[in-house]
Amino acid sequence: MKARPLVLSGLVLSALILASLGVGAASIDLGGSDPWTMLVLMQSRLPRTLALLLTGAALAVAGVVIQSLVRNRFVGPDTAGTGESAALGLLAVTLLAPAAPIWVRMIAASLAAMAGTALFLAIVRRLPAREVMLVPIAGLILSGIVGGVVTWIAWEADLLQFVATWLMSGEFSGVIAGRYELLWVAGLAALLAWFAADRFAILSLGDEVATGLGLSSRGVMRLGMVVVSVVSALVVVTVGMIPFIGLVVPNIVARIMGDNLRASIPVVAAGGAGLLLACDLLGRVLRHPYEIPVGTILGIVGSVVFLWLLYRPASHG
C-alpha cells in the first residue's frame, strides 16, 4: 500500500526511458547492435536520457528542500534567485579568470548560488508569515534583479550570447557524452537531501518544534542551502534554466503522500525525472525532426499545473 506511488512512478519512468532512447532526429533500431545504432545510443541518446533523469530528479528534490526551508509551497529553486546567482558567479569567473578549469567555474557558480539563496532566505525570514504569497513574489523580484545585473554585465563585456545559454529556457539537444557528467554531482546532492529527509521534515514543523527535538535549525538550513545551490548551479551551467519542475512536482506529491519526506523524496525524484523526460519527448516529436526546447514546453505545462494548484479547492477543514 505504502509503496504504491513509488512502484507506479517507477513503471511510468521505465516506459519514458525506453521512449527517450528510441526517439530522436536520427532513426535507429533499438533491438539492433550495428555500429550506427551503438554510436547514436552511447554518444547521444543515453547521455541525453541520463541528463534528463538527473536534472529532473535533482531539481524536484531541491524544490522540496527549499520549500521546507522557507515553509512555503509556492517557491522552487528556479524562483529563488538561485539560478541567476549561479550565472553571476560564472560570469565573474569568465571575466576575472578566463582560463580557469571547469571545476573552478563550477565551484564559483555554486558559491554564488549559495550567496543568492542565503540572501533569499534572509529576505523571507523578515516577511510576515501570514502573507504566503509575498515569498514567491520576493523570489521573483530577487531573480529579476540578479538576472538584470547579469545581463547588464554581459552587455558591457560583450558576453550576451554566452550568458543567454544559461538564462534562456534550458534544452537538452546539445547533450552528448562528455558534456553532461557534472549532473551526477547534482544527483548526489539530491541523494544527500534524502539522507537528511527527517531533518528537513522536522524543520518544516517550525523552529520551536525543531529546537524542542534538539535539532539545530541553522545546521539544517545550511545543508539545505548547499543542496539547492549545488543542484541549481550545475543544472544552469550544463543545460540552462529549467522552470517549474522544482515547484510543481513537490506540490503534487505532497498532495497525495503528505510531507513525510523520507517516504516522499524518492517519489518526488521519480516524478521530476518523469515530467522532464515527458516534456523533452514532447519537444522532440512535435516538430520532428526539429526540436522545441524542453524549457518552453515546461513553461506551458508547468504554468497550467501551477494555476490548478493555486485555484484548487482548499483542503483545510
Binding site: 521534515a201 522536522i202 527535538l213
Partner: peptide, 25 residues
C-alpha cells in the same frame, strides 16, 4: 520535551508521523 504556543503546524503530515517525530531525539 516542550510544546510552545505556536499556531497550527502547516506541514502535511499524518497524525501518526507527527507523533513519531517525538521519538527523533
Amino acid at each position: 520535551a516542550v510544546m510552545g504556543q505556536q499556531a497550527r503546524i502547516a506541514s502535511r503530515l499524518r497524525v501518526g508521523e507527527l507523533v513519531g517525530f517525538g521519538r527523533w531525539p
